[in-house]
Amino acid sequence: MSALLRLEGVNSFYGPVQVHFDLNLDVEAGQIVCLLGGNASGKSTTMKTILGLQRPGSGRVWFDGADITGLPTPQVIRRGIGSVPEARRLFPAMTVRENLLMGAYARSDRAAIATDEERVLGLFPRLRERLGQRAGTMSGGEQQMLAMARALMGRPKLICMDEPTMGLSPLFVDRVLELIQAINREGVTVFMVEQNASLALGIAHYGYVLQTGRIALQGPAGELLRDPRIRDAYLGGAARDGEGEG
């Protein structure tokens, strides 16, 4: 069991509808792993299953050598998983600083939290200028940064990001991708769900492609980028190489 996170034979259901069919997925420690897929492919459900927001019908979720299947979300978080939810989900009426400290809610080591706050603000200098501002009043890109910074405040081993580039201007998309790499360089494993295949594979080590609840393709990111099936399905064919969502 070398993988930091492992999904093993997961079958999930949304009411009577089956979302995942025998899903198997490994996230190696220290890597950036992306999960690609179109609408309704089951990406978000994968995220919810890992975070304990949804219990799988069968199968197991392993994290750091322990079975976390069906654990309540707060306990999953306490074991060292940070979450950057889809559409960011900040606490809009709380200040930037309060949002950051909410990220450290599961911790009680005050001194270390203060050092981590400094470290995180070093990574996101933009946030330092806005510590007293209400989170809901910031721009989308700034909010995305705060969401990532907030997740880092929990000092996680693994960060799960649900569509981190969604709804951002192209300028901010690049910035966010750089930051994800920076986070990863600090030793945090990143598992991200993305619709934008070329961008995600551009920074990832390994990728999975989810299609109607099954893993259709997987492999090192470089190989996937060159795979003609990926190009056809997600990059809009060779002619529109690099344009993003297909």
Binding site: L51, L53, P74, I77, S83, L90, A106
Partner: peptide
Amino acid sequence: QDSDAAQQMG
């Protein structure tokens, strides 16, 4: 403000 997000903070 956001009970789902709060859960995801632990």
